[in-house]
Design a protein around this nucleic acid. Structure first.
Lengths: 180, 180
DNA sequence: TGGAGCATGTAATGAGTTACATGATTGG
DNA sequence: CCAATCATGTAACTCATTACATGCTCCA
């Protein structure tokens, strides 16, 4: 029993439970909103981790089951402790998996036009994301510095991607003037 | 048999096999070097995918087994075809998982000093990576434009991260003057 | 000539995704 | 009052990581 230290997904759930009891469904929503841009998770994972953490005594049911067997959980003292311990641990390196880059790495097998198309689609997505982030950042101004900090990463990142698209044109990997 | 289209990892292996027959071991090395920075994979995955692709007829043994049962594979015509098909498919969105950002998102549970320590460690890593990438880019100048293109992403990305670290200080999330 | 270390692969486990199921709500 | 939709959870599967095993090489 106990021991086997938390994975980041489980730990994040504990983090959210600091704000009060929540059901799996609530946690999925909150996680997607708050950390979804740099830590993906799905319903299935959440329910699995909740079950495991309940078994380990890190969380416990809060109140009776609601409609459609909704069950809320609350933190226990060991849960609080496990979360704190996780927070202190050395965060590992970031992991990026970028399928578009894979296409480009094998770009010599693809014609320039098709490559340009693929990139152009992504271009638009990033333009929109950057705009959305900026708006959010403005709305957040002066409220939650930690949310602002994660958002700042998103903004820098999106800028970097957009600049990189320009570089692709300069390198002749994609056709110039088909992006903007 | 056949059908179930390729995942990106398997497809990349096919990509490398265009340069000639290779064993699992070789492929791991090449993949780490060429796409490792934006597409992680491990030995186990490689062997799994090779076995699956051999069963599907996308690759076949090339020559007899060498020392310590080393087996090289070569592309088949269906393999070549499957690769091309994969290349054409819409690449999905990138995925980023950044454990440090997770610590920051829950930063209010951590004291500023510890947060600064964590960030400082990452700071150094990124400084070094950026330098290494830049050197590589110079060495690559004018040779392989696709390699240059992927490298350019790495450079932009590392720059973005470093700039973001500055923002963290400005936001008061980490202590100023403890990074550089 | 044997043992330190590298090359190569497999097995066990853990994490993540997709597909499925079913109970509530609610607007028409 | 029922059909569409949303809420909530589970099961099956695929993918990824870590731990283990064993065969070769080569130098002390």
């Amino acid at each position: 029993m106990s021991g086997s230290s938390l994975n980041a997904t489980a730990a994040s759930l504990l983090g959210f439970l600091h704000d009060g009891p929540r059901s799996g469904y609530d946690l999925v929503r909150q996680a997607e909103e708050v950390i979804g841009d740099f830590w993906t998770l799905t319903r299935s994972q959440v329910y699995r981790e909740l079950a495991a953490m309940e078994a380990e005594g890190l969380i416990e049911p809060a109140g009776e089951a609601g409609p459609r067997s909704r069950r809320a959980f609350r933190l226990t003292a060991p849960g609080r402790h496990a979360f704190r311990e996780w927070l202190e641990t050395e965060p590992g390196p970031e992991q990026i998996r970028y399928p578009l880059l894979l296409r480009i790495a094998f770009g010599r097998h693809l014609d320039q036009q098709r490559l340009t198309e693929l990139v152009a689609l992504h271009h638009d997505v990033h333009v929109e994301r950057l705009a959305a982030y900026r708006e959010l950042a403005e709305a957040l101004e002066g409220t939650d510095r930690y949310a602002a900090a994660t958002l700042a990463f998103g903004i820098r990142y999106e800028q970097a991607v957009l600049e990189w698209f320009d570089t692709l044109a300069e390198l002749g990997v994609v056709e110039r003037d088909r992006l903007r």
